[in-house]
Structure formats: structure tokens, C-alpha cells
Design a binder for these strands. Sequence first.
RNA 1: UGUCUGAUGGUGUAACUGGCAACACGUCUGGUUUUGGUCCAGAAGAGUCCAGGUUCGAGCCCUGGUCGGACAACCA
Length: 557
Amino acid sequence: MEPLKKEEEKALNFLEEIIENDLRTGKHTSILTRFPPEPNGYLHLGHASSIWLNFGLAQKYGGKTNLRFDDTNPVTEDTEYVESIKEDIKWLGYSWANEFYASDYFDKIYEFAMQLIRQGDAYVDDLTPDEIAAMKGTPIEPGSNSPFRDRSVEENLELFAQMKAGKFEEGAKILRAKIDMASPNMLLRDPILYRIKFAHHHRTGDAWCIYPMYDFAHGQSDAIENITHSICTLEFIPHRAIYDWCIAKLNIYPSHQYEFARLNVSYTVMSKRKLLQLVNENHVSGWDDPRMPTIAGMRRRGYTPRAIREFCERAGIAKRDKLNEISLLEFCVREELNKTSFRRMVVFNPVKVVITNFVEEEVLLESENNPEEEHSGVRTIPFSKELYIEHEDFMENPPKKFFRMAIGQSVRLKSAYIVTCNGVIKDEAGNILEIHCTYIPESKSGHDTSGLKVQGTLHWVSIKHAIGVELREYDRLFKSENPALEEGDFKEYINSDSLNIIMNAFAEPALKEATESQRFQFLRKGYFCKDKDSTLDHLVFNRTVSLKESFTKEVKK
RNA sequence: UGUCUGAUGGUGUAACUGGCAACACGUCUGGUUUUGGUCCAGAAGAGUCCAGGUUCGAGCCCUGGUCGGACAACCA
């Protein structure tokens, strides 16, 4: 019997098709991609998508990927960001073939500029920024030529050298490509190639006072490295014309630019500028605030590299603007954490239960670390006369399908016994002080000879053994599905309830040994990880994501 | 009013390049369950932006529209 289909019959995305075609036709014998972040902010989920694409494509086709910092604007860039970016890429599970910087090529790019001048393809312009803007025309009206457009090659060479030598003030002169002021593509209306900036560069220091623009650095950098497939986002489509123009005029390695739609996720924002605002204006605690869609934030929140990669994979690649649902991301992280995380019991909002017929001091029970993983072992949980259960797990007047604790009803305490609720004790105000239950000794977990069947199973902790922990529950950062598209300031749509802190929850003692790299499922609650704010006697846990909850939906009906 | 670009269930991707629109998430049923989780089984949900055309046959090709996005930073 032949298999009907190859196991790996997954459809190719458009970039994979291009690459396979290039490989098949011999246009390329191997591929080289690059990931080109500007070191002016922290990486976010959108970058993760680009990283997954660039590194993943190279991996799939036996190629390599360079990490290249696009550091052509010294005023916004900083070494702090270089380090965080490298850390994030490594954490996501990728390694680069070479670590390069656009600033490594400043000498070469300067040479390229002189070559264009010599060819009559570039000129020094004295116009002010306002004048240049005014003469640029509009998308539907052609621009007009600068009066300095026809300077001689010699004069341009001399002026450009003086620009480099620091003879002119910022803004006094720029180098422009001589293309076409009437081009329907506004980017081709004599784009600026070099500008004067007396700024300290994080790598080249004060060696330069002129810096190339993106359009005069990116394609050249790609060409210098022999990048075969230069993948960027949709907004660079009109730039491809300059990219190709430079490569043709300079007669350098013909790298090719391909564009894909950036990743957007519902209920958050994905631009460095906006994220920077959230940080600077203290709407969040920092770049690594667990509510942030930054890699650092997601890492702190408990997301795993694998889950993020899986999300990128499932979100896919296309050329149309899109908004992915956050629920897909949540699915990906639950899928992994369900299989890998240890189970622990934590009572978030306690109510006291007294087992009236329990006479022993304590009993040590065993419970599996992870029912999804056979060899994950067990841990010990102490059981005693006085316990905490979740307040919401008890109701005096329960609705019909309430499979939890209620007077006269029996439930299983997870990994322990079946108990029957007999009554409650309240204070004058009507608050519940204690819930009284009796347990059935024969119903001990794993050795149940009682023959009883109960519908519900509750998590619990023994009061005298429990440890107090702080819990931080996160919700979506924005109330709007797509804050960037809303009217007015995106910050008007911030969800003021995105952080819920529970200062004193009660955890089973095994959680004392938790490490920051571990992930836990707090039974019936969600996935959590230990936060770096934890101290020896004060443990803090972040909720990565809740468990799927169908009962609350039921109640709302 | 220009150039570029895109349009397939609620969302995101497919459709062997012209052959009954598929997969995943989400939603809803039912079953199993010592987590109302997981797992298992199933269902609903688009006739592919519109109008013509070519064809035995069009989501794929042609023509004309409509709608969305990008472009007028000495940012990337």
C-alpha cells in the first residue's frame, strides 16, 4: 500500500514558492537572509514573526541568516537595545551566521555616494527642509527641480567632501539622488541619500557627521553581504524602486526585496513608537511589563519560545493587511503548557472548610505532577482538618448544574477524599466563616473503595501548611480590538483593568521550590510562572493565560 | 486626481496553477474525565467584493467597476 499523500503536504507560502523556484532554476544555489532591526527599541511579537520568517526560511532551505543592526540614525539608537535584541533572538531559539551593523559599511556607502556623484546621479542640495518639501509636489502633482540640481560633478564632489569634513551645519546641505522630480512614485523624486548630523553614534562615535538614509544603506548592505532574499514589510513596497535603482546604478550584487504583511494581534498595539509611549508615560511598568507584546514582556509573562514560534507559523504569511485574533496565541501557549507544566493547587480567594470527622493531625497525599506526561512523577501534599477552598466553589443556593460544594452535596477534593457538606457557620453580618464537611475515609484518591460517584472535583490547600503567595492576573491591554485604527489617541482605549493583583492567595507547599524557568498549571485556574519580583519569603506568580472556562459561560446564559 | 498594493466563513491561511471551496483558531452539541482543563466524536458558519466576458466548466484567465491599505520624515 502506498501512502495517499506525503506526510509533509503543507501548502507553501508565497516566499517559499519563490525560494524553491530560485533554487530549482539555479538562480541561487543557497539562500542568505537577514534580520535587520534598528536598535532603537525592544523587539515585539511583530519582530518575532519576521525573525521566524527570516531564520526559519533559511533553516528550511539549508541557508543562513545574518543579524544586521540597521543603525544609520545615531540620535535614536543605543547599545542598550542591541543587547536586548540579541538576547531576545537567542531566547526565541535562533542563531545568526554573522553579526553585522550597517555602520560597518559607512566607508563603503560613502564610496558609493561618490560613485553616484561621479556618474552624475547625485548632487548636493542647499535647499532647506521646508523648501524641499514644498518642491516635492504631491502624489498627484509633480515636483520641481532644485536650483542646485545641475551642479558640476567637481563641485558636488567638493561640497560632499566638505559635508563629511564638518564644514556645514546640520540641515544646511544634503546629498540627493538625481532621479525624477515628476515620478509618480514620490520616493523617486530625488530622494535624500545623506544628511548632516552632529550626533554621537553608538558604534562609530564621532567619526562621522554625515549619515546615509535608510534607502541608501539598506540595499547596499544587503548587496555587500550578498543577501539573496531581503524580506521586509508591506510599507516598503514603494521603496523597492530605490532599492533596485541603487543596485543598478552602483552595479553591485543584485539582492532582491520581497514584502509581506506585518503581524498584528487584536487588543494590542505593535509599533515601537506606541510601545515606547506606554513605557514613557507609565501606562505599564516597563518594556518587560507582562502585558506588553514585547518579547521581553511575553517572556516574563510565561510565554515560551516554542509557543510564539508556533503562533507565527499558524498565523502564516501573506501580502494583505491582517489582524490575527489573540485567541490563537492563547491556544498556542495553552497547547504547549498543558503538555509540559507541573500541576499545583492554589486557592485564590479562600473560604475555610472544616472536616469535622477528621481526627488525625495530618495525612500526606501524593499527586501526579502532570497527568499529560507519564514520567513527570508525583509530589506530596499535606491534608488536614482545616482547609481552604475557592470561595466561588461554594454556594448556598446553587443553580441546577452546579457541580461544586453546596449543603447536602458531595464533591471530590483533588487527590484527596470525597467530602459531604453539612452546613455553614456565619457571623452576624451573614459572612461565611466556616463550611462544615465530613469526609469519607474509603474514598482516598487512588484507593477509593467507597463506590461513590461525584460530579465535581475541587482544588484545595491545607491551611496550616499553605504558603501565602501574590498572584498577578493580566488581561488585554486595550479595550479596542485594533487601537491603532481607532479615532483619536490610541491611549484612550487602554483597558484600565488589565492588571489584577491578588496579594494573599494560598498555595500548596511544593510551590516553595518553584524556579523562574518553571511553568505551572494552577489547577482549574490557569498557567503561571514565578516572577522576578519574588523574594525568599514573598513569592509572586504571573498568570500567563487562564484555562479555558466553559462553566462561566454556562452561568452567563 | 497619480503611482503602488490588496480583496476567499467571525479570524487567519489553503485550493494540485481552470475541475464539487479545505485546514486551523473561535463558536455550538454530545461523550470520557479525580482539573467544568486535556482528550474523543460531531455540527453550524463563506459560494470566493461587484458586473460582464472566455470556457463543457472560473475563487483562479480577460474587461470594466467598487472598496481597503501604502506613498508628499534630513525616521526605519
